[in-house]
């Protein structure tokens, strides 16, 4: 076994990004409207080259205005959720932690419900605001002796999530149904609606948050052994916990505001990546980001193709496909 070197990390990350690009191209091909590989290739080539496009404008619209934005959002959501999941697993020292266990998605859902009457531009903003409120609330509840305590944090998160979920259910049954129909989709996780917020801004926020977590990657490896041990090995534990909490929560808030609560990605992808590349967070974070992106891009492509022209919720695909893949990898490793 070799220690991690820059070269090895670069190779792994580069490989994953290459796979992601292939998957993106694959997803551009898939959809309810059949577009041949040749047509797709010419569309891409001519668009990049800035040449005249003889193919009908609907094809351009489908590839560049429907599929491509959706794929980009999938990358964003997949990367955010899986890094957040990996972060929470380290913060809470619990392999079962997922991005929603601390109530972030419930806060976002509540924000989205409260913004139901308003113009649809406000919905992701309201969801984000709700998520931030939940983050602040759980943070205040989860402190002990002035710093975040994993056990207290977990309890505070679960209680907040339960309370908010009950509140959401109550609102959904009492509000007029025409407003709440969209909420059911939102709660399941839905990428079919385009986001009114520019994708570039969302990506920037995501990169900042992932970068912040990444600065603590070496510390997280030690934090997994226990806080006392990490402290005695030189980790600034309170600072690291705060950074991870805020970054992972921000990533979750981002993903959930854009696409609702897509399940399984945040817990499964980090584990699958661990089975492939090990538990070192310096490798785990970039690879799990790209891994999550790959999973959601694929799942979304399937969601809009399998039962075409009907669209399935992405969360259902991730659940159905994720579990068997994980089981397979686990068995291979154990044998």
């Amino acid at each position: 076994m070799q220690p991690l070197t820059a070269k090895r990390l670069g190779l792994i990350c580069g490989g994953m990004v290459a796979v992601l690009i292939v998957i993106i191209l694959f997803a551009l091909k898939l959809g309810a409207v059949p577009i041949s590989v040749a047509d797709l290739a010419m569309l891409l080539f001519r668009r990049i080259a800035g040449a005249e496009e003889p193919l009908p404008t609907e094809y351009q619209m489908i590839v560049f205005n429907i599929r491509l934005p959706r794929i980009l959002l999938s990358v964003l959501v997949g990367a955010s959720l899986s890094v957040a999941g990996a972060g929470f697993q380290a913060l809470l020292r619990n392999p079962l932690a997922d991005p929603y266990v601390l109530g972030v998605s419930s806060g976002a859902a509540l924000g989205a419900i409260l913004a139901l009457g308003a113009p649809s531009l406000l919905t992701p903003l309201a969801a984000f605001g709700g998520a931030l409120a939940a983050i602040a609330c759980v943070y205040l509840l989860g402190r002990r002796g002035g710093q975040l305590d994993s056990y207290t944090l977990l309890l505070a998160g679960i209680i907040t999530a339960s309370f908010l979920s009950a509140l959401i259910l109550f609102l959904m049954t009492t509000l007029p149904s025409r407003d709440t129909r969209g909420m059911a989709f939102w709660l399941m996780g839905d990428l079919s609606s385009s986001s009114p917020i520019p994708a570039g801004l969302l990506f920037l926020v995501m990169l900042v948050a992932i970068g912040a977590i990444y600065t603590t990657a070496a510390d997280l490896n030690l934090l997994l052994s226990g806080e006392q041990e990490a402290l005695h090995l030189g980790v600034d534990v309170p600072r690291v916990k705060l950074v991870v909490y805020l970054s992972a929560s921000l990533l979750t808030a981002l993903a959930v505001s854009v696409s609702g609560a897509i399940g399984f990605v945040g817990i499964l992808v980090p584990h699958i990546i661990r089975l492939l590349f090990g538990s070192d967070y310096r490798v785990l974070i970039p690879t799990t980001a790209v891994g999550g992106a790959i999973v959601i891009v694929l799942a979304d492509a399937l969601a809009r193709t399998v039962n075409a022209p009907n669209e399935l919720p992405v969360g259902a695909i991730t659940a159905m496909a994720g579990a068997p893949v994980f089981l397979y990898l686990l068995r291979r490793r154990l044998s």
Binding site: R93, A218, D219, L222, S225, V235, D280
Partner: peptide, 17 residues
């Protein structure tokens, strides 16, 4: 506490942190 599998040399390497 050993949550995730780690090799002996990786574990000792933590001492270099």
């Amino acid at each position: 506490l050993l949550l995730f599998p780690v090799r002996v040399w990786e574990y000792v390497m933590q001492g270099r942190h």
